[in-house]
Amino acid sequence: MLEVVELSWRVGDIAIVDGVSLRLDRGEFLGVIGPNGAGKTSLFNLITGSRRASAGRVLLDGTDISGLATHRRAQLGLGRTFQASSVFGALSVRENVRLGVQAKLGGSFRLWRRAGSFREVTERADQHLATVGLSGRGDALAGTLAHGEKRKLEIALLLAGEPTVMLLDEPMAGVASEDVPDLVEVIRGLTRHTGAAVLMVEHHMDVILGLADRLAVMHHGSLLACDTPEAVMANPTVQEAYLGEAL
Rank of each mutant, 00 (worst) to 15 (best):
V4S: 05
L7D: 10
S8V: 09
W9L: 14
V11W: 14
G12F: 07
G12N: 10
D13G: 14
D13V: 06
V20P: 08
R23W: 01
R23Y: 01
L24C: 10
E28T: 08
E28A: 06
E28L: 06
L30G: 05
V32G: 00
V32A: 01
V32S: 00
P35L: 06
N36Y: 03
N36D: 11
A38Q: 04
A38N: 07
K40G: 04
T41R: 00
F44D: 02
N45L: 02
L46A: 01
L46M: 06
I47A: 07
I47N: 08
R51D: 07
A53S: 12
S54G: 12
G56Q: 06
G56V: 03
G56T: 07
L59G: 12
L59D: 12
L59E: 13
D61H: 04
G62M: 13
T63S: 03
I65F: 09
S66R: 05
G67L: 11
R73P: 13
R73T: 13
A74I: 09
G77L: 06
G79R: 03
G79K: 01
R80S: 03
A84S: 15
S85W: 04
V87I: 13
F88C: 11
G89V: 11
S92T: 09
V93N: 01
V93A: 02
R94M: 11
R94Q: 14
N96K: 10
N96I: 03
V97L: 07
Q102V: 15
R110F: 09
L111D: 04
W112M: 08
W112I: 07
R113H: 10
A115H: 04
A115Q: 10
S117R: 13
R119Q: 12
E120H: 10
E120Q: 12
A125K: 11
Q127G: 11
H128Y: 13
A130S: 04
T131Q: 00
G133K: 05
G133S: 07
S135R: 07
G136D: 10
A140C: 03
A140P: 00
A142S: 09
L145F: 01
A146H: 13
G148F: 06
G148Y: 03
R151A: 08
E154T: 05
E154R: 03
I155F: 02
A156G: 00
L157V: 14
E162L: 13
P163A: 06
T164H: 12
L168F: 01
L168C: 02
L168T: 03
D169K: 00
A173I: 00
A173K: 04
G174S: 13
V175D: 08
A176P: 02
E178P: 01
V180D: 14
V180P: 12
V184L: 15
V184W: 02
E185K: 11
V186C: 10
G195H: 04
A196S: 14
A197T: 10
V201M: 00
V201N: 02
H204R: 15
L211S: 10
A212Y: 01
D213I: 09
D213W: 08
H219T: 15
G221W: 07
L223T: 06
L224P: 10
L224D: 09
L224Y: 08
L224A: 08
A225R: 10
P229W: 05
E230A: 14
M233R: 09
A234S: 14
N235R: 12
N235Q: 11
P236N: 11
T237W: 13
T237Q: 15
T237V: 15
A241I: 08
A241H: 11
Y242I: 10
L243G: 12
E245V: 15
E245C: 08
